[in-house]
Amino acid sequence: MPRAIIVGGGIAGLASGIAFANAGWDVTVLERAPRIEPMGAALSLWPNACAAIARLGILGAVAAAAAPIRQMLLATKDGATILSRPLPDTALLATRTALQNALLVALGPDRLRLGCEVAALAPGRVTLANGELLACDLIVDAGGIRAPSNTDVPPVYAGYGGVLALSGRVAGPGLGGVAAEYWGRHQRFGLFELPGNRRYWFLMRTQPAATAMPDLAACAAAAEGWPSPVCEAIVATAPDALIPFAVHAKPPPKTLCAPGIIRVGDAAHAMEPNLGQGACQGLEDAAALQAIAAAATPAQVAHHYDRLRLKRARMFVRESALGRLGAQGPAAAQFVMRAVLRSIPAALSEPRLRAMHTMPDYAARLR
C-alpha cells in the first residue's frame, strides 16, 4: 500500500488526506498545532466545491450544517444591481468550523498527528523538529501561503483588507439564499446567510498594510447609507466576533509540484478572495488527487496532477486578482469593470460563470 504524508491540517490538507485514504493509500496528516480548534468565519462553497466534497463523500455532512446559496448578487453601495445570477446547482455557505469538523470525521483520528512541527521536506522523507524521520511515497504540502516547499516567490500584500464576522440571530427577514457583495469606492461589504437567520459578513477596504483594522463601531459607521441588511448584520454581531485580515497573494503558479512533493490549497495557488474560490480550489485539488491516486502509481501522481490542475488553478489566481478592480482598483478601472459587468450579455457571461462553477471530471480526463 503506497503511503502519503500530508503536511498541514487545514481545509486542503484534511481534504487531501481523505482523498488518498479513499484511493486506498496509507495516509498521515501532520499538523503543528496541538489541537484542532474552531477557527475562522465562513466559506462560500460554490457548485464546483460542492461537487468536490461530494466526490470525497462528505457533501451530506457539510450540507446539514450549512445554508444554501441560491443566487449571486453584485450591487452598488445604493443597492443598484451590477450582476445577478441564480445558481441552479448546489452551493452552500458553511462556517469554516462546520466544514473542518466534517473533514475531521471523514479523515478519522488515527490518520491525524497533532503537535508535529516539520523541520524539512525531501523526496520520500519528512523530518520533524524533534528529529523523527518519516518515510513515504509522496509528500503533499498543504502548509498554506508560506508553505515550506514553496518559498521562491514570497506573498505580496494586495493593497486591501478589513474584517469578517459571524453575527448572532438577525431580527429582520432572511436573505432568501442570496449571496451579496456591495461595491462602494475603495470599500465593499459582503453578506451571506447562515442557518438560524445568522449572517456571515465582511468589510474590505483599500488601505496601507500597517493600517489598524476597524472595530465594530467603525464598521457600523462605514455601513451607514448601504443596504439595510448590511446594517442589520452588523447590529447583530458581538464586538469580539470580528476577525481582521489583510489580503496577501502570489502570482499564478508555474507548477503545482516540487521534486517528490505536490502542493495543494494556498501552498499551490494562493489567490485573492474576489471570486470566493480559495478554499473551493483546495477542495478541487483533493478531488483531483483522489482520482489520480486511485489510477496512477506514486511516481505518476505529480505529472497527472500538474496536467489536470495547473491550467485551471492559474486561471483562478489570475481572475481573482482582476476581481479587485471593481472596488479596490483605480477610479477609472472601477467604472469600466462595473460598466462591462452590467452590459455583458448573459449569452457571454453565463458560459464563463458555468465553467468556473463546474468541476472537471478529473477521473475521465485520466483515461
Rank of each mutant, 00 (worst) to 15 (best):
T97A: 10
D89I: 05
A94P: 03
A98G: 02
I69Q: 08
L92C: 03
T97C: 05
R96L: 04
L103K: 01
L59K: 04
T81R: 10
T76K: 04
P86A: 01
A64D: 00
N101P: 09
A94K: 00
A52H: 01
V62C: 10
P68H: 04
L92R: 09
T81L: 00
L83N: 13
R85H: 10
L59I: 13
A91E: 08
L73S: 01
A66S: 15
L73P: 03
T97K: 01
P68V: 02
D78K: 11
G60K: 12
A102M: 04
G57T: 07
A63P: 06
Q100R: 11
A102T: 02
V105M: 10
A65L: 04
I69P: 11
I69R: 14
A61T: 12
M72H: 15
A54L: 05
A94H: 09
A102H: 01
T95L: 00
L103A: 06
L103G: 10
V105H: 13
V62Q: 07
A63I: 00
G57C: 04
A80M: 06
N101V: 13
A91T: 09
R96D: 00
S84Y: 03
Q100M: 14
A61V: 11
P68D: 13
I53G: 03
R96C: 08
V62I: 07
T90Q: 12
L74P: 08
I69W: 05
S84I: 09
V105E: 13
G79Q: 09
A106T: 08
G57M: 09
D89V: 06
I53Q: 02
K77R: 12
L92K: 00
L103F: 03
A65Y: 05
A54P: 03
A102K: 02
S84F: 02
A52E: 01
L87I: 00
A63K: 07
R85W: 01
T90P: 08
P86V: 00
L74H: 14
L104I: 14
G79K: 00
A102L: 01
A75W: 10
V105P: 14
T76M: 04
I69S: 09
L92V: 00
K77D: 12
M72R: 12
L74I: 13
G57W: 02
A66P: 11
G57P: 02
P88N: 07
I69L: 11
A61G: 13
R70E: 09
M72Y: 14
A65E: 12
V62L: 10
A98Q: 05
D78N: 11
D78I: 08
